[in-house]
Each structure stands twice: as structure tokens, then as C-alpha cells.
Design a protein around this nucleic acid. Structure first.
Lengths: 204, 204
DNA sequence: CATCTAATTGACAGTAACTATCAACAGCGG
DNA sequence: CCGCTGTTGATAGTTACTGTCAATTAGATG
């Protein structure tokens, strides 16, 4: 039987795994930056990180997953749930988003911007990311339902969640003229503006 | 110099191409139904349709594209644009959706349901379909802007479009209990209900 | 009808993302 | 020090997709 003291620091094995994982990810992102996503092969990443190609796939199920490990929505939803129930869902989510962004340190923000740019640019990544939105809708819906004491599968709650995700999509995704500078830090500003419009009942 | 009479019926070449395309698509859908999407290889489809694998890729850029050629949104947006500008965007889109579904003949509806079920079930397809939603948001946004005499890139119009697509996503995508019967014909009913909620200002 | 041209096709060879398997190895507990 | 278990790398496959090239064929022209 293995005793697990609460404060025990992870053993050598765990630390090594974490380092390997970080190394793969960093080399991958560097190569993507230098050569582009498509032009970079998994073998190249593996060699750069000094592991075998098989090991790469042990750490990341697909090449896409090296880029896509965003936990931002999880954080935001966590905030969201703890805001007073008096706030409307949209208002609360807006505040939660702001708080979550504010809590990021510059290093995380920079890495986030890099992966976000990749995600919006490379079709495969964009598709995968969009797909995860359906999971996000479910999470926001549950949280909304919980906040207002409803059934977790409540249709109205799901609809609100869908609208929130939808307006964020619309505000975030590149369109016509500004296809270049999606990485601008005012991404948060656009999200906030979109949520404000939704909160105001989508005036036209 | 080649003269192209307006009313010329497509030559033998064009007809043959159309038939080949249809054959590939039908055999593919049949095989997907019988064996599942992943278990069916492009080679199998090509053999069933009696063409070479290379020809398959000449007609469909990827295996995914055999399933994903939905023009429903285009039709709905067409309807949408011609509805009186007095209707709010959401109300108009709701009506346009109903009209579009009503105009479908049973055969089209059946094929639509089959591809929809596949799309919601197979991760790759779902991801690709979701990605196309960003295009759809843009289209709805332009149409909305045109209806209300605004700039095609108007932010408020984009936000409305995002909300519409978002609530349709929320209403359409499978969640918890009913992961099985997404194909039920009441998909339209759920979409309509979601748009109704959005129209009413997302009451909770 | 004969012929020329351009589109369509199939065969072939190649790349890259995965998957499965298995033997070697390294940390960890006794 | 020893055995157990988790981690690794090598190897060999499968499959989606790409490029090229020669053979065929529809369709226009004389």
C-alpha cells in the first residue's frame, strides 16, 4: 500500500514526464512558428525534442493536440459559477471573462496568443477547436442551470449558453479585412463588446 | 473561340461527370451506413463506384467532403434576405428556416437526415461542419447588414448572426440523454424553439 | 468521315499521420 | 540488491492524400 502525503512532491518519474511533455510542446510550437504547421512533421518535432516519434504520440494523441490544450474556458466557467445569482447569465459570464483574462500573467498570455493565432489560421486546428465549443456550450449550460436552480439539461439554459458561445465566435473569428491581426490583444475587448450587445438584447 | 449558348443542355461529358459524382456519393453513404464511416476506406468506395481511387479524389477533395455538402444554410439565407425589413433579424431568420424546411421534398429530407446523423456522430465530420459555421456566421451577418442598410462588416450584425448560429448549435447538437436519436424530425422544432427564446430576449 | 485537341481517367510512386507490438530499460518499493 | 511496473524506442503496418504520366475519349473542326 502506497502512502500519499498531501504535500508530497511528485517523484522523479512524474517530473520527467512533465519535462518531456513541455519539451515536445515547446519545440513543436517553435517549429510551427518557424516553418508553419503543415510543413512541420511529427518526426521533426520528435527529433527536436529528442524523443522517438512513438513517444510523441504517447504524450499527444494527435498533432493537433499539441496546440489545442486551452483551459481558459474551464477557468472562466469556474469564475462564472461563483458570481451572485442576481446577475443575468450573460452579465455574469461577461464579468467572469474579464476576471479570467485579468488573472493571466504575461507569459501565459503570450503563449495563449500564439496558440490562438495558430488555431484561427490552420483549418484543421480551427475545426477541432470549434468542435470543442459544443462541449463548452454544455459546460456553460450546466453552470447556468446550476446558478438558477434548474435542471442541468434545461433547454433555455442551453440556449443561453449557445448564444454566449455564438457571439464570442462571431467576435473572435477572423473576417474580411482583419484576417491578419487576429492576435491583437483587444480580442478581450471584442468579446466584451459582443457580450454587451447580447446583454442589451441584440439591438440593431 | 467557343460559343456558349445560354440554354445549351449539358453535353455528354457533363452528364457523365454528374452521374459519376452521384454514384460515388451514393455508394459512399451506403457503405458508411453499413460499415461505419471509419471502417470504410476510400479504396472501397472507389471500387464500389467502379472508379479508380484517384478519380475519387478528383471529385471530392477529402473523404469528409462526400458527406459535407450542405446547401441548406444558403437556401435559408436566401429566404431570409427577401423577408420584409420590419421583422427583427431573429424573427426573420426563424421564418426563413421554417420556409426552407417546408420546401424540402421527402427524399431530400431523408438524405439530409442521414448526412446530419453522420455529421453529428463522427468527430472529424462534426469538426469540419462546425468550422463551416464561421462562414455561415459571415453570410448571415452580411445578409442582416444588407436588410438593415448597414455596412457588410458591421459588428452588431455579426453579433446577431453569431447568436443565431449559437442557439441553433445548442439546439441541434446532441447532449446527455438523447445522444441516440439526433435524427428525429423534430430537429426543426428544436431550432424554432431556440430561435423563439432568442427572440424573446433569452428569458430564464 | 477523318482528325485534332483538351478533358478525363487510371496506374504508379510517394509522403505523413497515425496504430500495434514487443523487447529493452529505468524508477520505485521491498 | 531484486523484482515489478511504467516508460521508451524500434519496427512494421494502414490509410488518407498528392503528383506525375500515359492512355483514352468527348467534342469541335475541316
Amino acid at each position: 500500500m502506497r502512502e500519499v502525503p498531501v504535500t508530497e512532491r511528485p517523484g522523479l518519474r512524474e517530473r520527467k514526464k512533465a519535462r518531456t511533455r513541455a519539451a515536445i510542446r515547446e519545440h513543436a510550437l517553435r517549429l510551427f512558428r518557424e516553418q508553419g504547421y503543415d510543413a512541420t512533421t511529427v518526426d521533426q518535432i520528435a527529433e527536436a525534442a529528442d524523443v522517438s516519434p512513438s513517444t510523441f504520440f504517447r504524450y499527444f494523441p494527435t498533432k493537433e493536440d499539441v496546440v489545442l490544450q486551452d483551459e481558459l474556458d474551464v477557468l472562466a466557467i469556474g469564475q462564472f459559477e461563483h458570481l451572485p445569482a442576481e446577475l443575468s447569465p450573460v452579465a455574469a459570464f461577461r464579468a467572469a471573462t474579464r476576471d479570467t483574462f485579468a488573472a493571466l500573467d504575461p507569459a501565459e498570455l503570450a503563449k495563449l496568443q500564439e496558440t490562438a493565432a495558430l488555431t484561427l489560421t490552420v483549418p484543421e486546428l480551427r475545426a477541432r477547436a470549434m468542435d470543442e465549443l459544443s462541449r463548452t456550450i454544455g459546460d456553460i449550460a450546466s453552470a447556468t442551470a446550476r446558478r438558477s436552480g434548474r435542471d442541468p439539461d434545461d433547454f433555455a439554459a442551453r440556449t443561453v449558453a449557445g448564444a454566449i458561445v455564438g457571439v464570442i465566435m462571431a467576435a473572435t473569428m477572423p473576417w474580411s479585412e482583419w484576417a491578419e491581426d487576429q492576435t491583437r490583444p483587444d480580442m478581450l475587448a471584442r468579446i466584451d463588446a459582443a457580450l454587451a450587445l447580447l446583454e442589451a438584447g441584440l439591438p440593431l
